[in-house]
Amino acid sequence: MTVSNRSTSHRLMHASMLMALLLSLIPWPPAVLLLQPHWVAMLVAYWSLNAASSRVMYVAFAYGLLLDVLMGSLLGKHGMSLVALSFLVTKSARQLRMTSMGQLLGMVLVLLFNDIIIRAFIDWISYGYKPVVYDLLPLLTAAFIWPWLKYLLDRFQVAVRNS
């Protein structure tokens, strides 16, 4: 990969992460909000898989802190869960790339579940939050969105690289 390719890939990464932040800020009716996937976590998973380098962890950390400021949560809560997600994906990125789409989807869902668990645990420690079943609904939408997200971003990257 040449230097220019790497920088366009970086730019694409930051653009998509900002889009994910915006998507999570758009106000929806309460019924839709229950199903809203954790966009930033999905994007972090995608870019960790794609780049397979530990540098994405810094990106995950930075966007996690931004999300914390936006949501008014404990500073570092989203940072912690996203860094953990990025680390786990990066560690097994080479194996994950070899697997089929279905297995990859399963693995991503497990990691997103782990992300939810970490955040619920931090909430529980900090103010005694008791998790409810509805917290797992975003996983359902994530399962539907992930294949499309991966396909679109892959195609987009190829298009950018070729142009």
């Binding site: 530990s54 962890m57 810094y58 950390f61 996690g64 802190l65 404990l74 500073l75 570092g76 809560k77 940072g79 912690m80 860094v83 953990a84 680390f87 990066t90 560690k91 931090i122 900090s126």
Partner: peptide, 26 residues
């Protein structure tokens, strides 16, 4: 190593959370 970076970042997050929760230091 990725593990080292991971541990450092998680440690920073933990410190920030404790600082934010207890003393408004963050």
């Amino acid at each position: 190593s990725p593990l080292f970076k991971f541990l450092v970042l998680e440690f920073i997050c933990l410190t920030l959370m404790i600082a934010d929760k207890n003393h408004q230091l963050a």
